[in-house]
Simulated assay, not measured.
Amino acid sequence: MAQRRMTFRHIEAFRAVMAAGSMTEAARQLHTSQPQVSRLIAQLEAMTGLPLFDRSGSRLSPSLDGTRFHAEVDRAFFGLTSLEAAAARIRAFGAERLRVAAMPRLAGGLLARAVARFKAEHPDVTVAIHSGDDETVNGWISSGFCDAALTMLYGDALDSRLEHVLTMDCVAVLPRDHPLGARPRLGPEDFRGIPFVASPLASALRSRVDAVFQTAGVEMTITAEAGLGAAICTLVSAGLGVSLINPLAAYEEAKVSPILIRPFTPALQVRFALLFPPDHTRSRLMRAFGACARAILLEELAHLPDAALPAVPEAIGNGRRILG
């Protein structure tokens, strides 16, 4: 006959009897019968070869061997508790560190709000936010220095894994009293001879804008250059010219700067996306943060005026446009 092996039920019954001091009370706590507890204890004593309890009539007290065995059982259960705690920490991403990046406007706004939401759900994760221009952010991601980035793309992202969140069209920004403000939609021909505040040379947005104006046969009259949307809008509001920027920046700056916003044709698309290092395996931590960042970005979009929203919604999916 095969030798009976010790099971969790035997140990559970033994610990219950040790704690309760009687088979009857142990059975009540375990929601079973007193004969079942007695049978389990008898089997455990047979398997260990130890008299675990001294019996005197109906009275039951731990033997010296039983007390020693109980100490070992408690140590084993403490180990199991430690494993349960470790599993809980892993589920909650305990002791994890996350490094995320974005261009300044996104870092101080959308990314910071995404991190705040993520920290509320996963308080044990340490999150570091890094801010830099688009070239710097792409470098941090491609080198693996940062785990994820929230960025705006006017071209391709090299050496990185790209997860599209949404696509929108850039808008024209004008001084509040500019004559072009009377027009519902603007195009390159409207800007002929009009002072223009441009993005820096060699930037992705500048390259796209230059191409659109060259195709239309319109030469831009550039009076100033600036790399940040806030700086562009400040120059525009000061009357230095008109410009083309991404709609999130435009509508945020319109809250504090006297500027007008108008749709622009042909479409100059900007993709809001999450970037991950090349050959990077998406962990649960990355997926959780990505979900927070995606949700925050879509919520911000929902608060924009209807005129800023893309006209044709598209299905959500990996690498596909959501809106645009």
Rank of each mutant, 00 (worst) to 15 (best):
P175N: 10
I222V: 15
E225Y: 07
R9C: 02
R176Y: 06
P278W: 11
L301Q: 12
S199C: 07
I322H: 11
Q3D: 11
H31L: 15
L106K: 02
I129A: 05
E121P: 03
A148K: 00
A101R: 05
P175F: 04
R321A: 14
S56Q: 15
R55Y: 15
C292S: 15
L240H: 14
L40T: 01
A273S: 14
I141G: 00
A120L: 14
P263I: 04
M47K: 05
Q29F: 09
R192L: 07
A231Q: 15
D54I: 15
A295S: 15
H10T: 07
E219T: 14
H303G: 01
A250K: 03
R68Q: 10
C170D: 08
L110K: 02
N246T: 08
V197D: 01
T221Q: 10
D65M: 08
P35Y: 13
A226R: 11
L285W: 08
R55C: 14
L201T: 10
F8A: 14
I222N: 03
R206Y: 11
T234D: 14
F145M: 13
A148H: 01
A204W: 00
A114E: 08
T265W: 02
I129G: 05
F264S: 03
S160W: 00
F289C: 05
S63K: 06
A198R: 00
A249D: 14
R97P: 00
R97E: 13
G187K: 00
S82F: 10
L106W: 02
R97Q: 12
N318P: 09
A85G: 05
I129M: 05
L297A: 15
M168P: 00
S58W: 12
A86L: 13
L244D: 01
R183C: 02
G139W: 03
P51A: 12
A315W: 05
H70W: 12
D210E: 15
S143K: 10
I222S: 05
V173M: 04
V37W: 12
L323S: 12
F93R: 03
G155R: 13
A302C: 06
R91K: 09
D190A: 09
E253G: 02
C292T: 11
A88K: 11
V115N: 03
S257H: 13
E314A: 14
L162E: 13
V115D: 05
L309K: 14
P179D: 04
D65A: 13
V127K: 06
V197R: 01
V125M: 07
G139T: 09
H10F: 08
Q43T: 03
M286K: 09
L301A: 11
R176I: 13
G181R: 03
L44T: 00
H122C: 11
L248G: 01
A311S: 15
